[in-house]
Each structure stands twice: as structure tokens, then as C-alpha cells.
Design a protein around this nucleic acid. Sequence first.
DNA 1: ATGAAAGCGCTAACAG
DNA 2: CTGTTAGCGCTTTCAT
Lengths: 376, 376
Amino acid sequence: MKRTVTIKDVAQKAGCGVATVSRVLNGSGATSAKTRERVFAAADSLGFVFSDIGRSLQSSRTRTLGCIVPSLANPVFADAVQGLQNVAQNSGYQMLLACSNYNEKDETEAVRLLLAKHVDGIVLTVSDVENSAALEMILQREIPACLMFNKPHGSIPASGIDNFAAAKAVAEAFHHMGHTDTGFLALRFRSSDRSRERFEGFAAGCRDFGMSDPQLLEIDEQSGDLSRLLHDLLSESAQLTGIFASNDFLALAAIRAAKELGRRVPEDLSIVGFDGIEIGRMVEPSLATIVTDARAMGSLAARYVLDHLSKADNPTSSQSETETKAAMPALGLSYHFRPGASLDAPGGKNKDGAEAATSTPSRHLVPNPLLNSQGE
Amino acid sequence: MKRTVTIKDVAQKAGCGVATVSRVLNGSGATSAKTRERVFAAADSLGFVFSDIGRSLQSSRTRTLGCIVPSLANPVFADAVQGLQNVAQNSGYQMLLACSNYNEKDETEAVRLLLAKHVDGIVLTVSDVENSAALEMILQREIPACLMFNKPHGSIPASGIDNFAAAKAVAEAFHHMGHTDTGFLALRFRSSDRSRERFEGFAAGCRDFGMSDPQLLEIDEQSGDLSRLLHDLLSESAQLTGIFASNDFLALAAIRAAKELGRRVPEDLSIVGFDGIEIGRMVEPSLATIVTDARAMGSLAARYVLDHLSKADNPTSSQSETETKAAMPALGLSYHFRPGASLDAPGGKNKDGAEAATSTPSRHLVPNPLLNSQGE
DNA sequence: ATGAAAGCGCTAACAG
DNA sequence: CTGTTAGCGCTTTCAT
């Protein structure tokens, strides 16, 4: 690897001091036209680029955001990262990305590394907000941060939707179709607060609508392959007419498993997902689900963090004067229920016809000032 | 944001010099048990973490890999990044991720930023290998790098498959089903060397099998929304019985568009994709496609780069003595054709029955020494 | 308008 | 065994 060209090299070639080079190339301080000329020429011919690491050491800012998601295999997270990435890029920030692989050890280690790298802010999704060493480290360091998909924690806000309410809307949809015996299907139930919130909301909804309590169908990630586990689970709960899966991925897998078991979807079993990934609209039957805007979650979180970088470093920041440091509520995003062929009345005898599916009144809009028309 | 705890603070609290702290915490050099004790205690109570930026400045290594992909919205790239991420993480490297948004300007800018941040290596996918300012910068800096999805360029290897050959296999599949009039559907044809290679391979295959030359159906990304453009394109080329889309995303969109136009797939129009994303197996009709292992492309590229970091910095490196600097071939990966319901004989009268689809002899295995059983 | 020098956090070389 | 110091690349006073 070629030796790096430093500001010294440029100074030497231009026949001036390093300070002058800095001033010229940064447009700071006054310089004479002739020096400018020589410096530009020298820098150019040498292919000089400022070293961000020298710069960072001096300024204690890295113009880098850290991001931690469980995995990129789930499009929901990939989308969120994309949203974050776009915002960051447009603001001249780079992104250090780490995956927690759904486990807390990697999560904590990732934060440690990001802090060591002195990222200016962090956007992340943790498995359990209430019990995360990673979050504690962030809180202690008082570095600007924002959660995605989770609930707010301490002074750290969260961009996401109201999982509880959304899950309740799913119960409503099932009820609307005449279901009473349902199940909630979850992978990593214990270690995912999102999963738990959705279950609670669903259960509450079922109670509200006079349905039986949903049965918890939990999949232990470690014990074998998903498809076999699903087969077992579905066989054991043949009495259920509807299943709410904690995310679309799982819902899709469940549909496949049900089909393999010879159960028709939705005639024999209705299935509803959560997330609203695009694929859901292309599969057969199309997937009924809660649609969320993962991309927006990423953008919103990124914008929040960028807006809260230390004032000194962020002169253009639009921090509102009225904002208090104490309360840090959720950055609420809208969601809505998307009907799909995977949900019908038990036995497929939906009397209302196709219209019934779309009549469920479940669009929830939460105006968000941070989300402006400029998009990302 | 709380002031960062530095090695000096620890030294002061432990009542010793900074060098001692460094020695103790890094396990380098000899130290007495009592000092060790005090240093650990001090560091611990202060919550000290080494600053990578100070370290990097001194060592000129960042333990960071740069990665540039067109977008994360396409699961193919998300998977590749995931593969890269896993390898990097396991080797103690972090990843700076940038998206080029399929345009060369962002691509070049991203490289500039990564170089400024002094990443130790770069893994990327460019739109056009033959004409990439980004690649030139990398070449000039002589920083370890590896391409993904592209062809090798100069001394930069590429992990990927043989697009030309794979596309030829698609022609074979069409021919096998009795198609003669086909089209090649591409988005961003001009700016994607992958697209072009696939077209060339497909055209060559068509010639080999005595079919008509495939018609090039090009979509100009800028001129309106995809679905309308597809409608137009499909309407104009009603005489074709088969379409090969340059990637699965496009294939899926084409299927949808065809359906909307009232054309049955595959009876009226067969469609084949490229990439083998998982969704393809869940849609209706299931998508015939070339299956590639994007994840492996990422892993392989990462491993290549890690193996080629400057020897001095990478004592454990397993660089082969025989490897020459001159030739830099492709890091070939295997691919295979996956039959699907979206491809049938014209008119849906496939005489061979379902078996025909699977009989296409097109599995290509390329043993790769870099890809060991340890996975990522 | 410009150069010299301090200092950001760290490691390595050199003294003791 | 341990402390002192130089220097990594850069910006920023402070002189000139």
C-alpha cells in the first residue's frame, strides 16, 4: 500500500507551511491568490485527501453514525438501514454498521466498538429495551442516540409504531371475520420486547372483542429447523382458526408450513403477519398484515440523532428551544392494517364478500414534525 | 456529551505513567502485579475504553473495512453485506457502509470518503467496472479491495458468478421449453455491466440453440413509474413468448404487470429471473431463476480483503507464497438454474410434463479454496 | 498573509 | 519494571 500523502507533503511541494495548506484547502482564514494557486496545484498533483483520523483526533468529531440492527436478512431492517444511510449521506455523515444477530452479547460488543470509534451518534434496535447493557453504556456516555422498532428508554427516544395498538387492530380484524380461537406465533419471544408487546396488544384486543385468549405458539430458535418446528406447532393447535405471526417472515413460513400439512389458507386457517414487507403482496394467498414504514423509521431516527449532536459541533442544528431534556417520548410513525387473502372468515364463508376485508377501520396516522416533505 | 476518559485520566488515577497503563491494558510489556491491580481498578471505575482514533493515528490502521453497494433495498445486496459483515465482525473488523444508489457520482464520492477515513480495505460493487473513477482511485492508492457481482478489474479480483455462462443457461432453459422468440428485460442497462453481460450471454445462448435474437427491452429508470413502463413494454412486445429479466426484482414486477394486462404466466408469457432471492419460491407462479449465493459473495470478498491486508499489520495472515501480484482472476462462485412455474412451454403445452423443468442440466460448481466449511 | 508550535489519544523507543 | 518523550495528521492560536 502506497504511503499516504499528508498535509506536510503538500506544504513542502507548495513551499509553504502546513497551516497555510490547511487554510487554503479548507477555505478558512485569508490567503493570497498566488499561494492558493500553488497549494491547489500541489495538492492536486499529489492526489491529497485530508485524513479524517487526524482531523477527528483534533476535533473530537468523526462525522460518523453508528448503527446496530439484528440482521440484514430481514428486509425490515435492511430498509431501516437504507433510510438511515440516505439521511446520513445527505448530511455528510458516514455509517458504521454492526449486526447483533439477535443476541445481547454481540449487541453490547457492537456498542463498545462504536464508542471506541467515537461515532457522533448511534441508531439501534435492541432485543430488550428494559434489560440492555448496550443501552446502559450509551446512556452513561450521554451520546446522542435513537432506537428503532423498540420503545423509548430513559432519555433515548424511539422511532417506531405503537406495537400494542397495532396488534390490537389485528385482533379487531380477526374478530371482524368471526374468529374466536386464535394463536400468536413468535420466534425469540423471550428476547424480543417487540414480540411481547405485540402479544400483549393482541391478547388485550381479543379480550376487548370477547374472543378467547390467544394461545401463545412459541418457537425456540435453537431447537432444530424452522419448517419442522412449524409443522409440529401447527399440528398441535389444529383447533385454532387464526394465527397472528409476530412478523411477516414468520407468517410466510407459517403459510408454507400450513400448506404442506394440507391445510388450506385461509379456509382452514387464517394467517396475519406484521411489518408489511413488499413480498406479502406477491405471494399466494396475499398476506394480511400490519404495514409499517421501516425506511421512515431509519430516516427519522437518523434525523433525530443528527439534530441532537452537541450544539457546538452542529451550528446549523434546528434544535427547538422548548424541548426539554427530561421527557423523551416515542417518535411515532403511522401504520395500517392491510387486508389480504390470507385472512378470511373461518371456513372461508365470509358473508360480507371481499369488501369486508377492507372495511376494517384501522388506519392510524400520527403527524410527525420531524418527517417533512423533503423525504430523506 | 460527557468528556471522554483518556489514558491520561487512568494514569493519573492509578498514579503511574500513561505507558504503563497502555502496557497493562494491552498486555504488552512486563508489569508488576500491584501496578496491574491499580491500573485495572482505575480503568474500570472510570469506564475507560481506548480511543480507536488515537490508536489509528499512531498505527495507521483502523480495523475497518469499507463497503459500497448500490442499495440495500435489493435483498441480493443486503445478503452480500450481511456475509461481509459476519466475516468482518468475526475478525474484529468493523464496517463502514455506503450506498451508491446505482450512480457513479455517489460511488466515487463514497470511495473518497472511505479513503479519507483510512479503511484498511474495501469491498464494493460498481455499476461499470470498465469505466469507474472509484476503482481508479482504489487502484492508485493500492489499498486491498475486492469487487462483488462485477468482473475483476486490473489487480482487483471479484467474487461472483459467470454472468455470461449463467445467462446462457437461461437461454438453454427457454430453448428446452420450445421458445424461440424471447426478450431481455433490463433496468439501467447502460450503466450496469452485469446487465450487459447477462444480455450478451443470453444472446449467445439463443444463437447457439437456434433461437431468434432476443429483443432488448430496456427501461429508462428516469422516465416515470416502473409499473406503467412495464405495461407499455409488454404491450409493445406481445409477440414474445418468453422474457428473461436481468434480476428477480424486475422479473417479479414483470409478472405482476403481465397479470394486470390479462396475460397469463406462464401460458401466455414465460418469465425467468436472475439472483434466486428467496421470495421467488413463494410467489405465484413460483419464479424460474438463476440461483446465486449473495451471502457467499460477501463473505468471500471480505475474506479476500482481510487476507491481503499489508503483511506487517496482519501477522496471522495466511498469504500463499506462490500467489503472484500480476494476475487477479475471479473468485468464482457456483450458481444453478432453479425451475419454476413461471417458465413453461409456449401456450403452456409442455409435453414432457413437470419433469421437463427440472431436467435442465445446469448446475455449475466451482470449488473455491477460500470457501471453507467453517462458513462465515 | 503566513509560519511555528501546541495538543488531540495513543504506542513505541529509550532511559532509568 | 516503569516513566518520559516523540510523533502519527490535523487545526488553531499566537506571533510575526
